[in-house]
Nucleic acid binder design. Structure first.
Lengths: 137, 137
DNA sequence: CTGGCTGCAAATCTTTTGCATCCTG
DNA sequence: CAGGATGCAAAAGATTTGCAGCCAG
Protein backbone atom coordinates (compact mmCIF):
# COMPACT_ATOMS: atom_id res chain seq x y z
CA UNK A 1 0.00 0.00 0.00
CA UNK A 2 2.95 2.24 0.75
CA UNK A 3 4.42 1.18 -2.53
CA UNK A 4 1.24 2.27 -4.22
CA UNK A 5 1.52 5.71 -2.69
CA UNK A 6 5.12 6.04 -3.85
CA UNK A 7 4.15 5.62 -7.49
CA UNK A 8 2.25 8.87 -7.47
CA UNK A 9 -0.93 7.12 -8.54
CA UNK A 10 -4.09 8.60 -7.09
CA UNK A 11 -5.42 6.61 -4.18
CA UNK A 12 -9.02 6.09 -5.19
CA UNK A 13 -11.18 3.70 -3.20
CA UNK A 14 -11.50 1.35 -6.16
CA UNK A 15 -7.77 1.16 -6.60
CA UNK A 16 -7.16 0.53 -2.99
CA UNK A 17 -9.71 -2.26 -3.05
CA UNK A 18 -7.98 -3.85 -6.05
CA UNK A 19 -4.56 -3.55 -4.48
CA UNK A 20 -5.83 -4.97 -1.23
CA UNK A 21 -7.47 -7.86 -3.03
CA UNK A 22 -4.24 -8.64 -4.86
CA UNK A 23 -1.96 -8.30 -1.86
CA UNK A 24 -0.56 -11.73 -1.07
CA UNK A 25 -3.03 -13.30 -3.51
CA UNK A 26 -1.62 -16.54 -4.93
CA UNK A 27 -4.51 -17.33 -7.23
CA UNK A 28 -3.20 -15.50 -10.30
CA UNK A 29 -6.59 -13.91 -10.95
CA UNK A 30 -7.87 -12.64 -14.26
CA UNK A 31 -9.42 -9.21 -14.69
CA UNK A 32 -12.83 -10.79 -14.41
CA UNK A 33 -11.91 -12.62 -11.21
CA UNK A 34 -10.84 -9.33 -9.70
CA UNK A 35 -13.92 -7.51 -10.85
CA UNK A 36 -16.14 -10.23 -9.43
CA UNK A 37 -14.31 -10.27 -6.12
CA UNK A 38 -14.66 -6.55 -5.61
CA UNK A 39 -18.17 -6.10 -6.97
CA UNK A 40 -19.83 -6.70 -3.60
CA UNK A 41 -18.10 -3.64 -2.18
CA UNK A 42 -18.21 -1.51 -5.34
CA UNK A 43 -21.18 -2.73 -7.35
CA UNK A 44 -20.74 0.11 -9.78
CA UNK A 45 -17.11 -0.51 -10.59
CA UNK A 46 -16.58 -0.99 -14.30
CA UNK A 47 -14.24 -3.22 -16.22
CA UNK A 48 -12.59 -0.14 -17.62
CA UNK A 49 -11.47 0.78 -14.14
CA UNK A 50 -10.19 -2.71 -13.44
CA UNK A 51 -8.22 -2.79 -16.66
CA UNK A 52 -6.95 0.74 -16.25
CA UNK A 53 -5.81 0.06 -12.74
CA UNK A 54 -4.12 -3.20 -13.61
CA UNK A 55 -2.35 -1.48 -16.47
CA UNK A 56 -1.12 1.28 -14.19
CA UNK A 57 -0.01 -1.14 -11.52
CA UNK A 58 1.87 -3.06 -14.15
CA UNK A 59 3.53 0.06 -15.54
CA UNK A 60 4.64 0.94 -12.04
CA UNK A 61 6.05 -2.51 -11.46
CA UNK A 62 3.68 -3.43 -8.65
CA UNK A 63 2.26 -6.47 -10.42
CA UNK A 64 3.17 -8.74 -13.31
CA UNK A 65 1.00 -9.73 -16.20
CA UNK A 66 1.13 -13.45 -16.90
CA UNK A 67 0.73 -14.92 -20.35
CA UNK A 68 -0.21 -18.40 -19.43
CA UNK A 69 -3.65 -18.99 -20.79
CA UNK A 70 -4.37 -18.23 -24.41
CA UNK A 71 -7.67 -16.48 -23.99
CA UNK A 72 -7.09 -14.17 -21.10
CA UNK A 73 -4.61 -12.15 -19.10
CA UNK A 74 -3.77 -13.11 -15.56
CA UNK A 75 -2.09 -10.99 -12.95
CA UNK A 76 0.39 -11.75 -10.20
CA UNK A 77 1.18 -9.45 -7.29
CA UNK A 78 4.31 -11.48 -6.63
CA UNK A 79 6.87 -9.59 -8.66
CA UNK A 80 9.80 -11.71 -7.55
CA UNK A 81 11.62 -13.67 -10.22
CA UNK A 82 9.58 -16.84 -10.15
CA UNK A 83 7.74 -19.05 -12.60
CA UNK A 84 4.65 -21.21 -12.92
CA UNK A 85 3.25 -24.70 -13.10
CA UNK A 86 -0.07 -25.03 -14.90
CA UNK A 87 -2.39 -28.01 -14.76
CA UNK A 88 -3.65 -28.53 -18.28
CA UNK A 89 -6.71 -30.27 -16.95
CA UNK A 90 -8.16 -28.11 -14.22
CA UNK A 91 -6.23 -24.97 -15.22
CA UNK A 92 -4.85 -24.51 -11.75
CA UNK A 93 -1.74 -22.31 -11.61
CA UNK A 94 0.89 -22.88 -8.95
CA UNK A 95 4.07 -20.96 -8.19
CA UNK A 96 7.21 -22.80 -9.02
CA UNK A 97 9.32 -23.22 -5.89
CA UNK A 98 12.39 -21.01 -6.02
CA UNK A 99 14.81 -23.86 -5.43
CA UNK A 100 13.76 -25.41 -8.71
CA UNK A 101 14.10 -22.02 -10.29
CA UNK A 102 16.31 -21.68 -13.24
CA UNK A 103 19.73 -20.22 -13.74
CA UNK A 104 18.77 -18.93 -17.18
CA UNK A 105 16.44 -16.17 -16.18
CA UNK A 106 19.48 -14.64 -14.53
CA UNK A 107 21.36 -15.04 -17.76
CA UNK A 108 18.40 -13.66 -19.59
CA UNK A 109 17.71 -10.66 -17.45
CA UNK A 110 21.30 -9.61 -17.74
CA UNK A 111 22.15 -10.44 -21.27
CA UNK A 112 21.81 -10.00 -24.96
CA UNK A 113 20.67 -12.75 -27.26
CA UNK A 114 20.50 -12.36 -31.01
CA UNK A 115 20.83 -8.63 -30.52
CA UNK A 116 17.79 -8.52 -28.25
CA UNK A 117 18.12 -6.66 -24.98
CA UNK A 118 16.38 -9.12 -22.67
CA UNK A 119 14.14 -7.57 -20.06
CA UNK A 120 12.28 -10.47 -18.51
CA UNK A 121 11.67 -14.16 -18.69
CA UNK A 122 8.58 -16.23 -18.19
CA UNK A 123 8.74 -19.96 -17.80
CA UNK A 124 5.59 -22.02 -17.91
CA UNK A 125 5.63 -25.71 -17.11
CA UNK A 126 2.50 -27.54 -18.19
CA UNK A 127 1.41 -30.81 -16.69
CA UNK A 128 -1.18 -32.66 -14.64
CA UNK A 129 -1.66 -31.79 -11.01
CA UNK A 130 -1.90 -34.39 -8.24
CA UNK A 131 -5.67 -34.07 -8.00
CA UNK A 132 -6.25 -34.57 -11.71
CA UNK A 133 -3.70 -37.37 -11.86
CA UNK A 134 -5.79 -39.32 -9.42
CA UNK A 135 -8.99 -38.84 -11.42
CA UNK A 136 -7.17 -39.54 -14.64
CA UNK A 137 -5.33 -42.74 -15.01
CA UNK B 1 2.48 -33.88 -45.46
CA UNK B 2 3.21 -37.56 -45.01
CA UNK B 3 2.95 -36.99 -41.31
CA UNK B 4 -0.49 -35.55 -41.85
CA UNK B 5 -1.58 -38.66 -43.68
CA UNK B 6 -0.30 -40.86 -40.87
CA UNK B 7 -2.58 -39.23 -38.34
CA UNK B 8 -5.63 -40.60 -40.07
CA UNK B 9 -7.03 -37.10 -40.51
CA UNK B 10 -9.01 -36.61 -43.69
CA UNK B 11 -7.03 -34.84 -46.36
CA UNK B 12 -9.34 -32.06 -47.37
CA UNK B 13 -8.07 -29.29 -49.63
CA UNK B 14 -8.43 -26.70 -46.89
CA UNK B 15 -6.38 -28.75 -44.48
CA UNK B 16 -3.68 -29.35 -46.97
CA UNK B 17 -3.51 -25.64 -47.68
CA UNK B 18 -3.15 -24.89 -43.99
CA UNK B 19 -0.49 -27.52 -43.50
CA UNK B 20 1.38 -26.32 -46.55
CA UNK B 21 1.21 -22.74 -45.33
CA UNK B 22 2.58 -23.74 -41.93
CA UNK B 23 5.32 -25.99 -43.23
CA UNK B 24 8.64 -24.38 -42.41
CA UNK B 25 6.85 -21.18 -41.40
CA UNK B 26 8.85 -19.30 -38.80
CA UNK B 27 6.41 -16.45 -38.30
CA UNK B 28 4.41 -18.03 -35.47
CA UNK B 29 1.11 -17.05 -37.09
CA UNK B 30 -2.20 -16.57 -35.33
CA UNK B 31 -5.42 -18.15 -36.53
CA UNK B 32 -6.28 -14.91 -38.26
CA UNK B 33 -2.90 -14.72 -39.99
CA UNK B 34 -3.46 -18.19 -41.34
CA UNK B 35 -6.98 -17.48 -42.45
CA UNK B 36 -5.87 -14.33 -44.21
CA UNK B 37 -2.99 -16.08 -45.93
CA UNK B 38 -5.17 -18.82 -47.33
CA UNK B 39 -8.23 -16.76 -48.18
CA UNK B 40 -7.03 -15.94 -51.70
CA UNK B 41 -7.11 -19.63 -52.57
CA UNK B 42 -10.16 -20.56 -50.51
CA UNK B 43 -12.25 -17.41 -50.20
CA UNK B 44 -15.03 -19.38 -48.59
CA UNK B 45 -12.96 -20.95 -45.85
CA UNK B 46 -14.37 -20.15 -42.44
CA UNK B 47 -12.68 -19.50 -39.15
CA UNK B 48 -14.34 -22.60 -37.78
CA UNK B 49 -12.36 -24.67 -40.23
CA UNK B 50 -9.12 -22.92 -39.36
CA UNK B 51 -9.66 -23.41 -35.66
CA UNK B 52 -10.84 -27.00 -36.07
CA UNK B 53 -7.86 -27.86 -38.20
CA UNK B 54 -5.37 -26.23 -35.87
CA UNK B 55 -6.93 -28.06 -32.95
CA UNK B 56 -6.65 -31.38 -34.76
CA UNK B 57 -3.09 -30.74 -35.84
CA UNK B 58 -2.25 -29.89 -32.27
CA UNK B 59 -3.92 -33.01 -30.92
CA UNK B 60 -1.92 -35.04 -33.38
CA UNK B 61 1.32 -33.39 -32.35
CA UNK B 62 2.01 -31.79 -35.71
CA UNK B 63 2.05 -28.25 -34.38
CA UNK B 64 2.40 -26.50 -31.04
CA UNK B 65 0.17 -23.83 -29.63
CA UNK B 66 2.13 -20.91 -28.20
CA UNK B 67 0.91 -18.82 -25.30
CA UNK B 68 3.02 -15.77 -25.82
CA UNK B 69 0.63 -12.94 -26.41
CA UNK B 70 -2.17 -12.39 -23.98
CA UNK B 71 -4.97 -11.79 -26.42
CA UNK B 72 -4.48 -14.51 -28.97
CA UNK B 73 -3.21 -17.97 -29.74
CA UNK B 74 -0.24 -18.45 -31.98
CA UNK B 75 0.88 -21.64 -33.67
CA UNK B 76 4.27 -23.11 -34.43
CA UNK B 77 4.92 -25.93 -36.87
CA UNK B 78 8.34 -26.42 -35.31
CA UNK B 79 7.59 -29.02 -32.68
CA UNK B 80 11.18 -29.41 -31.55
CA UNK B 81 11.97 -28.47 -27.98
CA UNK B 82 12.75 -24.82 -28.45
CA UNK B 83 11.71 -21.50 -26.99
CA UNK B 84 11.06 -17.90 -27.95
CA UNK B 85 12.26 -14.35 -27.81
CA UNK B 86 9.56 -11.70 -28.05
CA UNK B 87 10.09 -8.02 -28.78
CA UNK B 88 7.77 -6.14 -26.47
CA UNK B 89 7.78 -3.22 -28.83
CA UNK B 90 7.11 -4.55 -32.30
CA UNK B 91 5.76 -7.93 -31.09
CA UNK B 92 8.16 -9.83 -33.30
CA UNK B 93 8.70 -13.43 -32.20
CA UNK B 94 12.01 -15.15 -32.84
CA UNK B 95 13.11 -18.71 -32.16
CA UNK B 96 15.61 -19.06 -29.41
CA UNK B 97 18.79 -20.66 -30.74
CA UNK B 98 19.14 -24.19 -29.44
CA UNK B 99 22.60 -23.63 -28.02
CA UNK B 100 21.17 -21.11 -25.61
CA UNK B 101 18.45 -23.55 -24.82
CA UNK B 102 17.95 -24.50 -21.26
CA UNK B 103 18.78 -27.62 -19.36
CA UNK B 104 15.58 -27.29 -17.33
CA UNK B 105 13.09 -28.20 -19.97
CA UNK B 106 14.82 -31.54 -19.99
CA UNK B 107 14.39 -31.72 -16.27
CA UNK B 108 10.85 -30.59 -16.64
CA UNK B 109 9.78 -32.91 -19.38
CA UNK B 110 11.09 -35.81 -17.43
CA UNK B 111 10.18 -34.98 -13.92
CA UNK B 112 7.70 -34.42 -11.19
CA UNK B 113 7.46 -31.13 -9.34
CA UNK B 114 5.10 -30.57 -6.46
CA UNK B 115 3.27 -33.71 -7.45
CA UNK B 116 2.67 -32.43 -10.97
CA UNK B 117 3.49 -34.74 -13.84
CA UNK B 118 5.23 -32.29 -16.16
CA UNK B 119 4.39 -32.65 -19.82
CA UNK B 120 5.91 -29.63 -21.49
CA UNK B 121 7.71 -26.39 -20.90
CA UNK B 122 7.45 -23.03 -22.56
CA UNK B 123 10.03 -20.35 -22.01
CA UNK B 124 9.39 -16.83 -23.19
CA UNK B 125 12.09 -14.20 -23.05
CA UNK B 126 10.80 -10.67 -23.46
CA UNK B 127 12.98 -7.81 -24.60
CA UNK B 128 13.71 -5.24 -27.26
CA UNK B 129 14.85 -6.36 -30.68
CA UNK B 130 17.78 -4.79 -32.51
CA UNK B 131 15.53 -2.78 -34.79
CA UNK B 132 13.50 -1.29 -31.98
CA UNK B 133 16.60 -0.67 -29.90
CA UNK B 134 17.91 1.57 -32.60
CA UNK B 135 14.70 3.57 -32.81
CA UNK B 136 14.46 3.67 -29.07
CA UNK B 137 17.24 5.23 -27.17
C1' DC C 1 -9.22 23.66 -9.42
C1' DT C 2 -7.37 20.51 -12.58
C1' DG C 3 -5.85 16.44 -14.40
C1' DG C 4 -6.28 12.00 -13.64
C1' DC C 5 -9.84 8.53 -12.72
C1' DT C 6 -14.43 6.44 -13.00
C1' DG C 7 -18.66 4.54 -15.04
C1' DC C 8 -21.20 3.44 -18.90
C1' DA C 9 -22.04 1.67 -23.21
C1' DA C 10 -20.70 0.50 -27.51
C1' DA C 11 -17.21 -1.48 -30.31
C1' DT C 12 -13.60 -4.65 -31.36
C1' DC C 13 -11.22 -8.76 -31.51
C1' DT C 14 -10.64 -13.69 -30.89
C1' DT C 15 -12.60 -17.95 -30.34
C1' DT C 16 -16.51 -21.15 -29.92
C1' DT C 17 -20.84 -23.32 -31.13
C1' DG C 18 -24.94 -25.37 -33.60
C1' DC C 19 -26.45 -27.10 -37.48
C1' DA C 20 -27.33 -28.29 -42.22
C1' DT C 21 -24.65 -29.75 -46.06
C1' DC C 22 -20.69 -31.79 -48.26
C1' DC C 23 -17.12 -35.05 -49.48
C1' DT C 24 -13.10 -38.10 -48.20
C1' DG C 25 -11.98 -42.71 -47.40
C1' DC D 1 -22.37 -44.38 -47.70
C1' DA D 2 -21.11 -42.98 -43.06
C1' DG D 3 -18.82 -40.08 -40.30
C1' DG D 4 -15.87 -36.60 -40.15
C1' DA D 5 -15.19 -31.88 -42.12
C1' DT D 6 -16.89 -27.53 -43.90
C1' DG D 7 -19.38 -23.03 -44.10
C1' DC D 8 -22.25 -19.84 -42.10
C1' DA D 9 -24.00 -17.11 -38.77
C1' DA D 10 -24.75 -16.16 -34.30
C1' DA D 11 -22.98 -16.16 -29.63
C1' DA D 12 -19.75 -15.88 -26.16
C1' DG D 13 -15.83 -14.06 -23.79
C1' DA D 14 -12.10 -10.70 -23.07
C1' DT D 15 -10.44 -6.33 -23.72
C1' DT D 16 -10.54 -1.57 -25.54
C1' DT D 17 -12.36 2.93 -26.45
C1' DG D 18 -14.78 7.50 -26.21
C1' DC D 19 -16.63 10.57 -23.49
C1' DA D 20 -19.03 13.10 -19.87
C1' DG D 21 -18.81 13.80 -15.12
C1' DC D 22 -16.30 13.23 -10.68
C1' DC D 23 -12.90 13.65 -7.02
C1' DA D 24 -8.06 13.20 -4.92
C1' DG D 25 -4.21 15.99 -4.39
Amino acid sequence: MDRLKKTGMKLTPQRMAIVKHLDGNKSHPSAEDIHKAISPKFPSMSFATVYNTLESLKDNGLIKELTIESGKKRFDPDISDHHHLICTKCRKIVDLPEDISMPQPALASAGMIKGFRILSAQINLYGICPGCSRTDS
